[in-house]
């Protein structure tokens, strides 16, 4: 039973490596759709959904525009957000502070 569980997880791990490999392939396609400015409405939605997963929501008014950039990139790493979600959320926060 225990060995099976490990096997299942190890297969999971292997598929993750494949997914990461695919994400490299995905880049050229995604690059075209990339909205480098960020979108306020999408950002507001992503903020409401994601920024309460680990801790109480932080007031957009708490930080300056530049501080929201570093903070949101920090949270991108923690929360596993995509680059686009990060840009959208930054746009939302910088407009709402």
């Amino acid at each position: 039973m225990k060995i099976n569980l490990f096997k299942v997880y190890k297969t999971g791990l292997a598929s993750l490596i494949v997914i990461i490999g695919l994400s490299f392939l995905n880049v050229s396609v995604a690059e075209e759709k990339k909205d480098t400015k960020g979108d306020f409405a999408r950002g507001a939605k992503a903020w409401v959904d994601n920024c309460v997963r680990c801790h109480n929501v932080r007031d957009p008014k708490e930080l300056r525009d530049d501080q929201w950039i570093t903070t949101t990139f920090h949270m991108r790493i923690r929360a596993g957000l995509t680059g686009q979600q990060t840009r959208d959320i930054i746009k939302f926060l910088q407009t709402s502070n």
């Binding site: 994400s23 995905n26 995604a30 990339k34 790493i77």
Partner: peptide, 11 residues
């Protein structure tokens, strides 16, 4: 942390 693309960062 290096933000390699929109889906991956190397840390």
């Amino acid at each position: 942390d290096w933000f390699v693309n929109d889906y991956m960062a190397l840390v």
